[in-house]
Design a protein around this nucleic acid. Structure first.
Length: 459
DNA sequence: CTATGTAAACAAC
DNA sequence: GTTGTTTACATAG
């Protein structure tokens, strides 16, 4: 229930992608019908989606420049034997040529070039917005071809959104996911996401307020499926670009539920965890907070809030000394996919974003993790997986393409049943003491090797 | 409880 | 004013 999207193509090894990958894009039949494979076992995954193609490692973040060779990185079936039957394909528009290009091809190209942000070589079909130079493909364009409007695309899904078509009823996280999924390089800026929502959903129109925008931002920030990407280009002071994480691309989006506080009122604790300023900024909110803020003002310490000494975000509950989690070290890490580890490694990178604790790798993607037996292997292969039916799993919960495990979180969760779902709420990442070095900059800000990072963490 | 949505405080632009 | 982060509260299931 928590997962909406499912894996589809596993990420191929980068090497493979480069090497072989070129499967002609045409391998995808134009007929949309094919993109909607219903999961044979649909049951558990009725909510999953299959992604149409995988992206490559997003490295650069400047989606605007599309001048490259085309090539597509459509690795797709390359090494995967088959599509996981467990999901739907959300294939982007088949009938729109224009769109296809932007989505598919560009997708691949961006990465490479991307240097001059100023030159946008968009096709004429792209509408230029005024976003100071940033031209987004979304806006009218997309809707012009509205894939989702195509009735034929809706098999008979009960409207829950699976058909690949954009179901306006889906939750924000899912919608954002779709927006990004269709975006070149799986990256968009907030504005465009807003636009996309305006054009493809009712959220915007349905509300007079800007609450929907708030919700979008909230989801972007809180959901591990989305990551900020540094915006290389000057012009944009529009904020960061948001991109789907590889995990998300592979595994789909998961619920944005990590932030709720599990322990209803555990106030006190967390405030002691130091956090970076920016993050600390949002510390308070809500009505109650307002109240307490008032109280505080009248006599409370303010400074206690956090200090910046920390480099990374604060410590996750699991790492919190006060946290009483499973004793077993192997279980110490929170199950939540949202706890990422990498984050902290790069906090230093100037603009990078890896602050969200993405979990990703932790939960599934990281090969090193997945296969390792090291004591640090925080996420040992799950005993069983919800994806059992998937061919990917080979029925045994084996690592997929060596790159990831497709886990269902249930297994993991079970590991932590004793703990108040620690993770899920703490959006923070472990700042392991001494565990990670923030090492500065990690060089390429934009290109972040999560696995590597993880490795650092792991040892 | 969980998943979502929404409001809001707040910092940094 | 916008963007991003985070907390709180509400509510449906």
């Amino acid at each position: 229930m928590m997962e909406w999207a499912a894996p589809t193509n596993f990420l191929l090894n980068p090497m493979d992608q480069n090497g072989t990958a070129y499967h002609n894009p045409n391998s995808f039949p134009p007929s949309s019908g094919d993109f909607y494979h219903y999961a044979q076992n649909g049951l558990s995954y009725n909510d999953n989606y299959n992604l149409p193609y995988s992206t490559q490692y997003p490295s650069s973040s400047c989606p605007r420049s599309y001048n490259g060779p085309d090539l597509t990185g459509m690795p797709i079936m390359g090494m995967t034997e088959s599509y996981p039957p467990t999901a739907y394909h959300i294939e982007p528009p088949k009938h729109h040529d224009a769109m296809d290009l932007s989505d598919h091809e560009i997708n691949g190209q961006l990465m490479q070039l991307s240097n001059d942000c100023e030159h946008n070589q968009y096709g004429s079909h792209i509408k230029t917005e005024d976003h100071s130079g940033y031209q987004s493909p979304y806006s009218d364009l997309t809707r012009a071809s509205t894939p989702h409007d195509d009735p034929s695309r809706h098999p008979h899904d009960s409207g829950s959104g699976e058909g690949g078509a954009i179901d306006k009823e889906q939750p924000y996280a899912q919608l954002i996911y779709q927006a990004l999924l269709h975006a070149p390089n799986k990256t968009m800026i907030l504005r465009d996401i807003y636009d996309w929502f305006k054009n493809h959903t009712d959220k915007a129109s349905a509300s007079e307020t800007k609450g929907w925008q708030n919700s979008i931002r909230h989801n972007l920030s809180m959901n591990g499926a989305f990551e900020k990407v540094d915006q290389p280009c000057e012009e944009s002071r529009k904020g960061f670009m948001w991109r789907l994480t590889e995990e998300a691309i592979r595994e789909g989006v998961k619920s944005t539920t990590r932030y709720r506080s599990k322990q209803p009122n555990k106030r006190g604790h967390r405030t002691q965890q130091p956090q970076p300023q920016r993050q600390a900024s949002g510390a308070k909110g809500g009505q109650a907070a307002r109240r307490s803020a008032r109280m505080k003002r009248s006599g409370r310490i303010h400074g206690a809030y956090r200090n910046d000494a920390y480099i990374s975000r604060s410590v996750p509950a699991a790492f919190d000394p006060s946290y009483h989690g499973p004793p077993d070290s192997s279980l110490r890490y929170p199950p939540s996919p949202y706890y990422g580890s990498e984050v902290d490694f790069h906090y230093s990178s100037p603009s990078s974003n890896h602050n969200k604790h993405r979990n990703s790798d932790n939960d599934f993607g990281s090969p090193s993790l997945a296969n390792s037996n090291s004591p640090l292997d925080l996420f040992p292969p799950p005993p069983r997986s919800a994806y059992t039916h998937s061919p990917m799993m080979g029925g045994a919960g084996l690592p997929i393409t060596g790159n990831a495990y497709v886990l269902d979180h249930s297994p993991t969760e079970s590991l932590f049943t004793n703990s108040p779902s620690p993770s899920a709420d703490e959006p923070r990442t472990p700042a392991s003491q001494g565990g990670w070095l923030d090492e500065g900059g990690v060089g390429a800000t934009c290109v972040f090797d999560e696995q590597l990072a993880y490795r650092e963490y792991a040892g």
